[in-house]
Amino acid sequence: MSIAVKIITPNQVVCSEEVAVLRVDTVMGEIEILPMHRPLIALLKVGSVRLKLWDDSIKTIATASGILKLEHDQAVLVVEEAVNVHEIRVASSVEEAKVLAKNALKTAVTRGNLEQNELNQLEAKIRAELNKKLKK
């Protein structure tokens, strides 16, 4: 027995999983849902949804306000925004940002030389045009 959980936002389906236990933050407080639960419609507040999978790992998803509908062990969470907490990798994103900055600096130097050439060409063009105009 498991619960099929689907988290849907206006932009995408964020998550679709078979879970053993579902824990959500409703406006009345936190509730835990097990398989064979009675059908339920609940208002969700801004908070987190915790999914306990069959391998005992826990998946946390941060959600905005929305509605939960549970029927026949199928839970649909219709929320305005949802982010998988494990996908927010602060440390690695900082490292990535540093590497990106370094590469950008390297390419910027070479790009700078190129731009100088382009600038010279442009300047020559403008001067030629200006001469033409002045002659007129």
Binding site: T26, P39, L40, A42, L43
Partner: peptide, 17 residues
């Protein structure tokens, strides 16, 4: 969309939902 014959629970209540 399969229907469940048991009575629906509402949290907090129908009006607010």
């Amino acid at each position: 969309f399969r229907r469940d014959s048991r009575e629906l629970l509402f949290e907090p209540d129908v009006e607010q939902i």
